[in-house]
Design a protein around this nucleic acid. Sequence first.
DNA 1: TCAATTCAAACACAGAACTTGTTCGTTTTC
DNA 2: GAAAACGAACAAGTTCTGTGTTTGAATTGA
Lengths: 252, 252
Amino acid sequence: MDSAERMDLIVARLRAEGEVSVAELAELTGHSEMTIRRDLDHLADKGVLRRVHGGAVSLLPRGQEPPYAIRERMAVDAKKRIGQAVGELISDGQAVLLDRGTTVVEVARALAERHVTVMPLSLQAAAVLSESTTVRLLMPGGEVRSGELAMTGPLTEASLAAVRFDTAVLSCCGLSLADGVTAYDLADVAIKRAAMRSAQQVVLAADSTKIGQVTMGHVGPVSDFDVLVTDTGASDDSVTEIRAAGVAVHRV
Amino acid sequence: MDSAERMDLIVARLRAEGEVSVAELAELTGHSEMTIRRDLDHLADKGVLRRVHGGAVSLLPRGQEPPYAIRERMAVDAKKRIGQAVGELISDGQAVLLDRGTTVVEVARALAERHVTVMPLSLQAAAVLSESTTVRLLMPGGEVRSGELAMTGPLTEASLAAVRFDTAVLSCCGLSLADGVTAYDLADVAIKRAAMRSAQQVVLAADSTKIGQVTMGHVGPVSDFDVLVTDTGASDDSVTEIRAAGVAVHRV
DNA sequence: TCAATTCAAACACAGAACTTGTTCGTTTTC
DNA sequence: GAAAACGAACAAGTTCTGTGTTTGAATTGA
């Protein structure tokens, strides 16, 4: 069990129990208490938990999005494949908007050697693209919330309104036929809607764990999207239904 | 002689001669030709030079700013001290604009644990500040030129015009009483001027190697700045003169 | 207050990752 | 076509990173 697996375990227990103890985690992972303490300190830095004597308590409000530091390690392989596939949907010369989110960072990686114009909504994607010599990189204005690495606020909406894109690549937190595409918070919803208004083609990049999920912020019906790129974990039934709504679905 | 020193030597020779040979560099550094080739490949990736059979030729146009990858290793200690000193000029609660430039990245580091609102003009500084939980981080819109990590263009100017700052921390390429403060290119000049218009207090962060230098883009007279923070390499004479122009000078 | 527990700094160690040099077959140059 | 330059692959040395142990200080609860 390596460092990443321990972190996942800690987060899983925090979500289930709300608190953890150093001794319990040392037992579970088979590592020393010192190592567990270091793990907890690390997660405390990220804002995931608060240390207390003997353990830690969760700072993750239930039903709210886990911080970037946690999300970036979920479903890594699927996200890479999805990122690659979305990259293939975009042709050279296009202007592309990239939403926030770990999946979309993989799209940024896929675009890094291409000749395209990109406006990313996350600093993570911006960092990836800034190393490219071929990409023309535009940044939107906006506020970067701590812990998140994504731009929000009225400045961001204004930036989006001022530009037109060939393709917008959006992420989401939940995706169901009944409840449509959902995001975790309302600020994010406003941004996504603005992005959709500014783009000719809208691509939704969502790994299969998102399918069937519903979260608070309602972005719009599934039929508002032109293409869905997801992974092979998506069931045949759900894909058939989404296709019936008029969305082209790619499973990779 | 380690990797960084070799790189510096290679760049120095490129600037002096315009070209270098693998054999010559192997001789000079006392390292194998294979190592030199790897160094050259690395610099070629950064856009500093172009490989040719037997060596490399410079891609650094004379009199133009060396790329970020090179600048970040010049006068490192002085920049750190200057960054720290500028941080002490800024009080909690202020709204601060941070210019591009390697010196200003050090200012960002100094502000990372403070309670301030910051708008950085470089992705490098943004990356530093995005890890902070105390800083409120605003990004300007704009275009990020490849190789550089700084925002430019009309979008950036518009973002600056829309906000008011307590303090703007600017960098420069040259600073002399006769020719004023100068930057390398005109796009940069426009940005710096816009920043100065939006700020109550304007601080210039410039290591002593900049004093006496003159480059193409004229930003304005020295007296337009309220404070200059430089390092102890600055001569007494130059400091006295600049103070006489009405600028508070801190030497650290 | 005391005893038990928890904590974190310091050191030690193993494995990973990076840097460098060498070899050797291929490519380029003249 | 010969000499030089190249770069892939491997090997050796180094540094970095993650982990565990020790130990004295801090915290907790009786």
